[in-house]
Design a protein around this nucleic acid. Sequence first.
DNA 1: GGACGATGTTAATCGTCATTAACATCGTCA
DNA 2: TGACGATGTTAATGACGATTAACATCGTCC
Lengths: 194, 194
Amino acid sequence: MTSPAGRTTPEAPTRRAEILAAAAELFARRGFHGASIGDVGRAVGLTGPALYRHFSGKEAVLAEMLLDISQRLHAEGLRRAAEPEPDRALDALLHWHIAFALDNPALITVHERELDNVPEAQRHEIRRLQRAYVEEWVRVLRRLRPGLPEDRTRAAVHACFGLLNSTPYSAAALDRDSMAVLLHTMARSALTTA
Amino acid sequence: MTSPAGRTTPEAPTRRAEILAAAAELFARRGFHGASIGDVGRAVGLTGPALYRHFSGKEAVLAEMLLDISQRLHAEGLRRAAEPEPDRALDALLHWHIAFALDNPALITVHERELDNVPEAQRHEIRRLQRAYVEEWVRVLRRLRPGLPEDRTRAAVHACFGLLNSTPYSAAALDRDSMAVLLHTMARSALTTA
DNA sequence: GGACGATGTTAATCGTCATTAACATCGTCA
DNA sequence: TGACGATGTTAATGACGATTAACATCGTCC
């Protein structure tokens, strides 16, 4: 063999994260079913079967990825929504979501599209967190616009996410900060006019 | 055999359209690679191989689907953008895109996600039409907001599409007309504030 | 009333893919 | 220094899926 089987460098602590990052990129670009375990392995310099040393299977990779994303979004969302001034709370939520989307376009994409491919067991918890995150936004917005009925408020929040998550497709054109400002302005305006 | 092979009813003129519609639904819900030819066939009451009587292959189904969508969007986009008053032109574009998205959520989803799975040959033409459609919006918006630099304008249009195309995920909550009004209001506000 | 084209069906074919088995290598540490 | 656990690798294994082959059926039209 041209290269020995084992690796000398003990990059163990990063390995799982490395795999998750590569998988996110591939799942985002080609879809869960469009990226194979072999593709993911190759992306981190391994063969396909090697991934089974770190995850119990392909679905487990996706599940852990989505669970992590929804936890991060929800946890920080809770914090930001706690701001007493609803106007400031909304800005804080916007800043948070925009930063996350711009810094992790692949994660946002996968989070938005691939829930159905997560095994039942973990799907419920992820969905719960996603819903809870949305509800934080709804609560803040309702304090800001008490007249708006709840279902319309929720629909507006979903539409707003659509706007913010469009990042992966167009972020290339503008530098990060210009894009962040643009998205913030547009989203704020859309929500407060709804 | 329990049922005869040939069909008596000459539903020939609809068959292709029927297949395209079923495929759109499945591709939207599960992704191009997540839906098999067998699934599509079953959805229209046929077996998988039967589809080859109507399309040269799975990719051809997707290609025809995306080509049709991008042509329809672009053709009508051209018409609406021709309105001399930029303010009215924008409203006309919004009405058109919103109606299309609300009436064809599956098509919008596939159009947005699956271009990479179209064979090169047809991909270029589809991309050209998609770009041209965006440019119609950009042109209108630039007349409306001359101060906004072109790249920011284009980014704003992309973000606006993200908002409008979020329809598939949340449209269930509101009736069609309320949703249309909501999206129109939000999008208009987002674009003119950008 | 029989030949033909359009449409379908079921039975190969062939490749890809997830997953598992069997077999190294390396670092550690008793 | 030698056994062991952690990580990898290369061969199975077993499904599944796209596509094609071989074989009906039906309606039409001469």
